[in-house]
Design a protein around this nucleic acid. Structure first.
Lengths: 181, 181
DNA sequence: AATTAAACGGAGTGATGACTTCGAATATAT
DNA sequence: ATATATTCGAAGTCATCACTCCGTTTAATT
């Protein structure tokens, strides 16, 4: 692959991440303009808008999964769990927007996105069970509802206008519930 | 206003409620088709798509507000609060649009929608403070984060795939956090 | 420096969707 | 029953957006 092509591909991805993170309904032209390339170049690298969105989403999910795997080695499982939870919620605003853009334009997620998403959830599940074994999270909580709370907290944080104070107090209440014996 | 006009207006509103509840990105044509009227009729009653959406949203918010006001007279404030919370979550799970309606009512929304949304939140706030005075909800919780939790729980419930078991366990954890002294 | 194969950009194209127009139809009043 | 004022719906208009075509430019090789 030629050097300029690789360059442009990278620039397009960061531009797309930025644009779709802000406005889920943004057009491909917007991405091209921000990336400083022509529209055709975007479509040459990503044959369809959906593929572009999937690429961006995959990158984000990979980062989260890696972060979870990294924290899995911690010697304080409780701290690791809550730290990951908090980080996901903090980053959620733009990530959710991208996921929304994807569902809005094409609906069903592609093969790769689903695989990485699954990997991320598996890593999160590991964090949860470790924290439960350490007694930092109530033992009767199952993965499904904890994951639902993770997504819900992310949504709630974006809706609350992202004010850090409110978000932290919200998480405080939630964490008390998760610790509750 | 003529009888048939009033009829059509009502049919359009219920159709819109249904259609947009299922697919937020649905077209005006879809609404017209389901309502059994021509497109022009829809636009005559609601000059713009936004106004139609606002009308539907207003109706939903009014129903919720009325339910909150009704529960405000209860002699068990704690039960009233949690009942309302649970109902909002349950309804948004089956009808995706309510959660969206809630977030939308907070941000960019027309005059009327904002007014009704404000009324609904005020009624919910009353339920909260009454529950706190009764000692059923922790006193240090402020409205902003509780409202964020309400929206978040709604979103999380829909994301969890609508399974009632998971939803109830999720709410159980959340309520433990809200009761936590 | 010349060659060439790959990548680039901008001007199309076709489809979709919000909104309008206007002649036909219908409810209400006389 | 007739008149008329209002409402109805099908066929438009216009803008937007995902995606393509093709002549031009540029990176890498000799």
């Amino acid at each position: 692959m030629r050097a300029d092509a690789r360059d442009n591909r990278a620039r397009i991805m960061t531009a797309a991440d930025d644009v779709f993170g802000r406005a889920p309904g943004a057009s491909t032209d917007d991405v091209a303009r921000l990336a400083g390339v022509g529209i055709a170049t975007v479509f040459r690298h990503f044959p369809t808008k959906i593929e572009l969105l999937e690429a961006v989403l995959t990158l984000r999910l990979e980062r989260l999964r890696d972060r979870a795997l990294e924290l899995a080695g911690s010697d304080d499982p409780g701290k690791a769990f809550f730290e990951f939870f908090t980080q996901v919620v903090a980053e959620s605003a733009s990530k959710l927007a991208i996921a929304e853009a994807l569902t809005a334009s094409g609906a069903t997620a592609g093969e790769e996105v689903r695989a990485v998403g699954h990997g991320m959830r598996a890593a999160f599940d590991d964090l949860l069970t470790a924290a439960q074994k350490a007694g930092a999270v109530r033992a009767d909580a199952q993965f499904a509802e904890v994951y639902a709370l993770l997504i819900g907290a992310s949504r709630g944080a974006t809706a609350a206008g992202l004010e850090p104070d409110v978000r932290d107090r919200m998480l405080g209440i939630l964490y008390d519930g998760l610790k509750h014996s």
